[in-house]
C-alpha cells in the first residue's frame, strides 16, 4: 500500500485500520484490564470513605474543632516548666544517642554474618536475615511498650527499644554495604599472604567503615524523631510531657513542646547532614 501525503482518502484510512488494528487502539483485553483496575480502585476508595465515615460534614466539624484548638494553642506558654521541657528534650537526645550506639554495636558483628561474600552459607544468612526482618517489622513503639511492661517505666525502656529495632535496620544496611565492596582490595590483601582476620581488617573494614558511620548517623537522625514520641507509652523523653499536656487540655504548653521538638529535629538534621557530608568526603 503506497501513500502520498495529501492523497490519503477515507477508504485508505479504513483499510489501514483493518490491517493494523494494534496501531490505532490497544487490544480489548488490555483496555478491559485497565478499566477494571480503575473501577476497583474507585470502589475501594468509596468503601474506605464509607467505612471510616469520612463525610464532608464530619470533616468540617472536626476542622472547626481543630481551629478552636489552634486558637487556644497560641501564644505558646511554658507555664514555668521550661526547665522540665529542656530536660525532657535532653533526655530524648540521650535516648536516641545511646540507643543508636548500642544498636550499631549489635549490628556491626551480625552484619558480617549476614553478608553473602563473607560467609558463603546460604541457610545461615537466610536465617540471620529473617531475624533482622522481625526486629525491623515490629515498630519501635511496640518494642517500647513491651520493654516498659517488662522492665518498668523510664528512659531505659526507650533506649532498649531503639537499640533493638536499630540493630535490625542497621544490620541489614551494613550487610548490604559489605556485599557491595570492591573485591580487588580484598584480593590484593589476600595475595600478600594475609589470613582471614587480616583480610577483614585491611581489605574490608576500611572500605565499609565510612558508609557504616554515615548510615549510623542517619539512623541517629531518624531515632531522634522516634524518641520524641516514645514517651507516649511511658518510655522516657519529651513525649510523656507532651501526652500529659494534651490529655489534660493544657494546649499552650503542648504547643511549646511541639515547637521545641521541631527545633531539636531541625538542629540534629543539620548537624548530622554536615557530619555525613564530611564523612563521605573523606571516604572518597
Amino acid at each position: 500500500m503506497r501513500l502520498r501525503i495529501g492523497a490519503v482518502s477515507k477508504a485508505d484510512m479504513l483499510e489501514a485500520r483493518r490491517c493494523l488494528p494494534g496501531a490505532f487502539c490497544r487490544p480489548l483485553a488490555q483496555r478491559l484490564l485497565s478499566w477494571l483496575c480503575w473501577t476497583g480502585l474507585a470502589a475501594l476508595v468509596l468503601f474506605c470513605a464509607v467505612r471510616f465515615d469520612m463525610s464532608p460534614l464530619r470533616l468540617w466539624s472536626g476542622l472547626s474543632e481543630l481551629g478552636t484548638l489552634t486558637r487556644v494553642m497560641f501564644p505558646p506558654a511554658s507555664g514555668g516548666n521550661m526547665d522540665l521541657f529542656l530536660a525532657g528534650i535532653l533526655e530524648t537526645l540521650a535516648m536516641a544517642f545511646l540507643g543508636t550506639l548500642i544498636g550499631g554495636a549489635i549490628a556491626f558483628p551480625l552484619s558480617f554474618l549476614a553478608a553473602k561474600n563473607i560467609l558463603p552459607a546460604w541457610l545461615f544468612h537466610f536465617g540471620v536475615r529473617r531475624v533482622f526482618d522481625v526486629l525491623r517489622g515490629v515498630d519501635v513503639m511496640i518494642w517500647a511498650l513491651i520493654f516498659v511492661v517488662a522492665i518498668g517505666l523510664g528512659p531505659l525502656a526507650g533506649i532498649l527499644a531503639i537499640a533493638i529495632s536499630d540493630a535490625g535496620t542497621l544490620a541489614k544496611l551494613f550487610s548490604e554495604a559489605i556485599e557491595n565492596i570492591d573485591r580487588k582490595q580484598t584480593e590484593g590483601v589476600r595475595s600478600t599472604g594475609a589470613n582471614a582476620v587480616k583480610v577483614m581488617r585491611f581489605g574490608v573494614i576500611p572500605q565499609v567503615l565510612p558508609v557504616m558511620l554515615s548510615f549510623t548517623l542517619y539512623m541517629f537522625e531518624s531515632n531522634t524523631r522516634s524518641a520524641t514520641i516514645l514517651g507516649i507509652v511511658g518510655a522516657g523523653g519529651i513525649g510523656l510531657l507532651l501526652a500529659d499536656r494534651i490529655r489534660a487540655n493544657v494546649w499552650d504548653q503542648a504547643c511549646l513542646i511541639i515547637i521545641l521538638i521541631l527545633v531539636t529535629v531541625y538542629f540534629i538534621d543539620f548537624v548530622s547532614k554536615r557530619l555525613r557530608e564530611r564523612l563521605i568526603g573523606q571516604g572518597k
Binding site: L242, I246, V265
Partner: peptide
C-alpha cells in the same frame, strides 16, 4: 517534621 503520632494525639481531640 511533627511526628505522626503527635498529629494523631491532637486529631483524636478534634
Amino acid at each position: 517534621s511533627v511526628p505522626d503520632l503527635v498529629y494523631a494525639l491532637v486529631f483524636v481531640f478534634a
